[in-house]
Simulated assay, not measured.
Amino acid sequence: MDNFLILIREDIAQVSNLSEVEMQADIEAYTQWVENLAAHDHFVSGEPLEAKGKYMTKEQVSSDGPFIESKEVVTGFILIKARDLDEAVELSKTCPIFKGNGGALEVRPIMKY
């Protein structure tokens, strides 16, 4: 089994406007999803991320986040184990992000060296 990183990308405006009840429902849905991945020995690690942060280049720290140049923000990550990229994508299709208010996932293989 190889490791794959799932980046969770959401519209910052939509995430910011969730009610407490909606936020709790999202947390419960993601918790159930991760528990299911773990029960099938696919979950390695994962955490939600704060929207705030710093965007940096070699020359400077160019902006504070959330970044106005992008309406989409990475709100979390999940590290999973899968046979290959196709299986990682299939596992990712069950993510609650596809049942909610939109958003996207990026699935990336962890490079072996």
Rank of each mutant, 00 (worst) to 15 (best):
Ile6Tyr: 07
Ile12Val: 13
Ile97Asp: 02
Asp86Lys: 09
Leu85His: 10
Leu18Tyr: 13
Gln60Asp: 13
Gly53Asp: 02
Gly100Arg: 14
Ser19Pro: 03
Lys52Asp: 14
Asp2Leu: 04
Leu7Tyr: 11
Val107Ser: 02
Met111Glu: 03
Ile78Val: 14
Ala38Thr: 04
Leu49Val: 09
Ile8Glu: 01
Val15Leu: 14
Ala13Val: 11
Ala38Gln: 09
Leu18Lys: 12
Glu47Pro: 04
Tyr113Met: 14
Ile97Pro: 00
Arg83Lys: 15
Tyr30Phe: 13
Asn17Leu: 12
Asp64Asn: 09
Asp41Ile: 07
Gln14Glu: 15
Leu37Pro: 03
Tyr113Pro: 04
Val61Asn: 06
Arg83Cys: 05
Lys54Val: 06
Leu5Asn: 11
Ser16Gln: 08
Met1Ile: 07
Lys93Leu: 13
Cys95Lys: 08
Gly76Gln: 01
Glu28Gln: 14
Ala38His: 07
Phe98Val: 04
Gln14Ser: 12
Ile110Asp: 08
Val44Leu: 02
Gln32Asp: 15
Glu106Ala: 06
Gly76Tyr: 01
Ser45Pro: 01
Ile80Thr: 05
Ala39Thr: 01
Glu87Ala: 05
Asn101Arg: 15
Ser19Met: 11
Phe43Thr: 01
Val21Ala: 14
Thr31Gly: 07
Ser62Phe: 09
Glu22Gln: 15
Glu87Asp: 05
Leu37Ala: 04
Leu7His: 07
Asp26Ala: 11
Ser63Asp: 05
Gln14Trp: 09
Thr94Trp: 03
Leu18Pro: 04
Arg9Ile: 09
Pro66Trp: 01
Ile27Trp: 07
Ala29Lys: 11
Asp11Glu: 10
Glu50Val: 07
Val74Asp: 09
Trp33Leu: 04
Thr94Ser: 10
Glu106Lys: 11
Gly76Asp: 06
Glu10Trp: 05
Asp2Ser: 08
Ile12Ser: 11
Ala51Asn: 12
Tyr55Ser: 11
Val89His: 08
Gly53His: 02
Ser63Cys: 08
Phe4Thr: 11
Leu105Phe: 02
Ala29His: 08
Phe4Tyr: 15
Ala88Lys: 02
Ala82Cys: 02
Val61Ile: 04
Met23Pro: 00
Lys54Trp: 06
Pro96Trp: 15
Val107Asn: 01
Pro66Arg: 06
Val44Thr: 01
Lys58Gly: 13
Ala25Ser: 14
Glu10Gly: 08
Ala38Lys: 13
Ile68Gly: 10
Pro66Lys: 01
Lys112Ser: 15
Gln14Ile: 05
Pro48Ile: 00
Asn17Arg: 13
Ser45Met: 08
Gln14Ala: 11
Gly46Leu: 00
Arg108Gln: 10
